[in-house]
Design a protein around this nucleic acid. Structure first.
Length: 552
RNA sequence: GCUCCCGUGGUGAAACGGAUAUCACAUCAGUCUUCGGAACUGACGUUCCAGGUUCGAAUCCUGGCGGGAGCACCA
């Protein structure tokens, strides 16, 4: 429909002697202003040489009748508003009910896209930044899939480097069990603190770091292997809870030697400086960064070059998107500049999506147990809160439901705002299960499921009434595929989140006003609409990576 | 100091240069629940400042003010 309208408007403008226009067409913010609206009469008033309203009238006269459009109106300063015919809206309801991929498009058909996200570090806590990267990366992956792309999910984990040495030092000092993931975080904290305050400890940690790279010490190798496995196994449980399944795992222990080689092979690109090997970003209006330390070890920068090469060898992608925190944006620009010189074939395919940081409202930095909030403690706290709330629910398994609600609550907080902005984390707000929240969307979905189930039990037929489908809820539903397309083209899940909240709200309002199963012939049409709402919420929640339980 | 990002009701956010700036939380006032109240209805209340571009600016440009991030061997 949007393309048909644009073409018709463009032809109508040509009759008013305005050529080669880029026709703007949008959904008006308010439904009373139509299903589609165009501001061309305002934009091209100069070229046409007539006042906006006059031009709008000329255009409307030239448009004539358009199939599927019931009414065309000129409103405000000269907007042309289009109202869809009931039959056209009924088609959307029918499609929503019958198509599994309702809302999908083919804009990225045959494109291969790798999305790298989450990226936690073994031996360290799974913190809130990882939760953010996971929520955003997973949702972007699903948006791309709904646009027809072939997507592979990648996770890049720092299993080598100074943080690992600090944790190993801590394990050996405290004598804790490296097989216990919960102990490793403590060991890391101990090591990191000693590294700052104790010169002897710093030297020991540095020595361990070198030995982890060259694998020369049997005891260190053993602690390393045990800790690495314990961490990774533990992360796997979290991914499962969050609904992510990775296709590829990359490790810094693999990318380090590759990165080192790439730097050594390109002496013309990099320079020696104070014993280190650096890339002078200034030649591309960036800054200088160290790629290989004076001890001969590759930094994160060199490893990222190795990662790009390894990814490209693993799968021939068209685009590789990395989701990381905003604080790494400048860093990433330098790495990409170096990559253009070292790996010119791969560099143009590498994209970076940066998200804001999680910041804390004052005095609310502690979890229920009094420790610093991690991604994991947040999930645990929210699950507890949801258990209290869901104790009387209709769900078959309260434990599972509590976890699904918790995941919805936290992911929603992250995905409801533009990803470039910081999130002010307020624990009370995140714990809230009402209003502008993930559970609100889940509830609307569960409610729609219940109505459809009731209709089946009572033997009420479900049939789309093509002549009475012009209510606001149906018109909102009709916008779903375009909301998906819009969010996908911007790599911005929050654009879809906003749509879903408004849509769920419209459904709840409608539900409060209308008696659906009232025994009249109208009921069949209403059941069909509820079924379409159910599917829209289900698909929308899936794209956000939020579970959609049928009962709660 | 230099570079980048951001300033929208009391709070957290939305608005692809367009219509009366939208939504939620909080506050206040209601619905008393036959199909699910994790819900619904109403009230209150907002674009940092000064210029500029435009028929039209929260949005684009310039200059302030305020906040955040980055800037050499960490990731």
């Amino acid at each position: 429909m949007p393309e048909t309208l644009k073409k018709a408007i463009s032809e109508a403008l040509a009759r008013a002697s305005v050529y080669g226009v880029n026709v703007s067409l949008e959904h008006p913010a308010e439904l009373k202003n139509g299903d589609y609206s165009s501001g061309v009469a305002l934009q091209y008033t100069k070229q046409a040489g007539v006042a906006p309203k006059m031009l709008a009238e000329k255009i409307v006269a030239a448009l004539g009748d358009i199939k599927g459009i019931a009414k065309i109106e000129i409103a405000g300063p000269g907007f042309i508003n289009f109202y869809l015919a009931s039959a056209a809206l009924a088609e959307a309801v029918e499609e929503a009910r019958t198509e599994d991929m309702w809302g999908a498009n083919k804009n990225l058909a045959r494109k291969k896209i790798m999305v790298e996200y989450t990226d936690p570090n073994p031996f360290k806590e799974f913190h809130i930044g990882h939760l953010m990267s996971n929520a955003i990366g997973e949702s972007i992956s699903r948006l791309l899939q709904f646009s027809g792309a072939e997507v592979r999910r990648a996770n890049y984990q720092g299993d080598i480097g100074p943080h690992v040495a600090k944790a190993i030092w801590g394990v050996m000092k405290l004598g804790v069990d490296p097989n216990d993931a919960a102990q490793l975080g403590k060991a890391y904290a101990t090591g990191a603190q000693a590294y700052e305050n104790d010169i002897a400890a710093k030297a020991e940690v540095d020595a361990i770091n070198t030995k982890v790279y060259d694998k020369s010490d049997a005891e260190i190798n053993a602690v390393y292997a045990a800790g690495r496995k314990a961490s990774l196994d533990h992360f796997e449980e979290l991914y499962k809870m969050l609904g992510t399944k990775f296709d590829h795992y990359f490790f810094e222990s693999e990318t380090a030697p590759r990165g080192l080689k790439l730097v050594e092979k390109n002496p013309g690109v990099f320079e020696k400086s104070d014993g280190a090997i650096v890339y002078k970003g200034e030649k591309k209006e960036l800054h200088t960064r160290v790629f290989v330390t004076s001890k001969g070890l590759p930094t994160y920068e060199a490893k990222d070059l190795g990662l790009a090469e390894l990814k490209a060898e693993t799968w021939g992608f068209d685009t590789s998107i990395t989701v990381t925190a905003h604080e790494q944006a400048d860093y990433f620009a330098v790495v990409k500049a170096a990559m253009e010189d070292v790996l010119p074939d791969i560099a143009p395919k590498i994209q970076h999506v940066s998200h804001g940081m999680m910041r804390f409202a004052e005095g609310k930095m502690s979890s229920r147990t009094g420790n610093v909030i991690t991604g994991e403690s947040l999930l645990v706290d929210l699950t507890e809160a949801a258990k209290v709330r869901g104790a009387e629910s209709r769900a078959e398994d309260h434990e599972v439901l509590a976890q699904q609600v918790a995941v919805a609550a936290i992911k929603y907080q992250i995905l409801k705002q533009a990803s470039g902005k910081d999130i002010i984390f307020d624990r009370d707000r995140a714990l809230s299960l009402e209003g502008d929240s993930g559970p609100y969307l889940q509830y609307a979905h569960a409610r729609a499921c219940a109505v459809v189930e009731q209709a089946n039990l009572r033997g009420v037929a479900s049939k789309v009434g093509s002549n009475r489908a012009s209510d606001d809820l149906t018109r909102f539903l009709h916008r779903f595929p375009e909301a998906v397309e819009y969010a996908s083209s911007h790599n911005e899940p929050h654009l879809l989140t906003n749509y879903l909240l408004e849509f769920a709200s419209a459904f709840n309002s409608w539900y409060a006003q209308v008696h659906i199963l009232d025994g009249t012939p109208e009921a069949a049409h209403r059941v069909a609409l509820v079924d379409a709402v159910r599917k829209t919420l289900k698909n929308g929640l899936w794209i956000l990576g939020i579970p959609a339980p049928e009962r709660m």
